[in-house]
């Protein structure tokens, strides 16, 4: 059975994948939906606060009279983008470190794996909060850049990637260690291939599937982490909406408008669980021997 057909037998993963595609499409189409409904995600209208669902505002309006649906979709763009970008970023860092450790072995391996253990041992969230509070101006970034709107978006991607590479690094190192001893690698060594070529052309393709699985599984965690940081006021900064920071305002309004707290959280929940199922399905499909973890 090919990997794709094995994936299709994992029902939860297939449903999740369809759901994620729909969600991503809706998020990407947010400006179009905005135009079609004739609403603006950032238009404040104090006369229409806490509006009930209507033809123009399908999910009603929030405490500033903004349309909840299009804000959710715009938030989805941000949350999905951060999740994907940070997952790819941490996968790249993890792959480089894991490849180097597994390929060179010895002291390099010892140092890099001890570094990995050290990062794993850290209480991640409090440290990420400190990193998120760092004043970029003090790091020598020009003030205009350090205070721009977009910077909170890129800052959170970098921060999460810095904390999230450890799983991939360990997996890649383990896989690289075993692949390195295989005959085709020795043959390549005998033919005089450089270290870089050995790592990129011969070893990397053979450790690709654990990287793909770990990266997919990490997206869910990253979206959770982003939402927590944004919720605490240290991630994505308003007026740029994200599912996390939409909940910050909603928390103060749970007595008057509890529904505002339901929608963004529900979307985070559904997205994260979908990514986890897809990752689980990929794991079964790409590595049938790992039957111990799941069917």
């Amino acid at each position: 059975m090919t990997a794709w057909r094995r994936f299709l037998t994992h029902r939860a993963a297939v449903v999740s994948l369809i759901l994620l595609v729909l969600l991503a499409a809706a998020a990407l189409a947010a400006p179009l939906i905005e135009a079609a409904l004739g609403v603006d995600a950032n238009a404040v209208s104090l006369l229409d606060r806490f509006g009930p669902p209507s033809a123009a505002n399908w999910l009603g309006t929030d405490e500033l009279g903004r349309d909840v649906l299009v804000r959710l979709l715009h938030g989805g763009r941000v949350s999905l983008f951060v999740g994907l970008a940070a997952a790819v970023g941490s996968a790249v860092i993890g792959t480089v470190i894991g490849l180097a450790a597994g390929f060179y072995g010895g002291r390099v391996d010892g140092f890099l794996m001890r570094l990995t253990d050290g990062v794993i041992a850290l209480p991640l969230l409090p440290l990420l909060i400190v990193l998120a509070a760092v004043d970029l101006g003090k790091l020598g970034l020009p003030a205009g850049l350090a205070q721009s709107d977009q910077v909170s978006l890129y800052r959170i991607i970098v921060i999460v990637a810095l904390g999230g590479w450890t799983t991939v690094a360990r997996l890649v190192r383990g896989a690289a260690l075993s692949v390195r001893r295989r005959e085709f690698v020795r043959a390549a060594v005998a033919l005089g291939a450089s270290d870089t070529r050995l790592m990129l052309v011969h070893i990397l393709p053979n450790v690709a599937s654990p990287i793909v699985v770990a990266t997919t599984l990490s997206i869910g965690n990253i979206i959770l982490l982003e939402s927590v940081l944004s919720f605490l006021g240290l991630g994505i900064q308003p007026p740029l909406p994200s599912w996390g920071n939409m909940l910050t305002n909603a928390q103060e309004l749970i007595w008057s408008a509890p529904m505002l707290a339901i929608y963004p959280g529900l979307l985070i929940f559904v997205t994260v669980i979908a990514f986890n199922f897809v990752g689980d399905g990929l794991q079964d499909a790409l590595d049938p021997r790992s039957g111990g973890t799941r069917r």
């Binding site: 927590v228 909603a250 929940f269």
Partner: peptide, 20 residues
Amino acid sequence: LACFAGISVPPFWLALLFII
């Protein structure tokens, strides 16, 4: 399924739901 739900739920949102 229940385990996946538990792993995937944002803790602060679960707390908000409890409070509500």
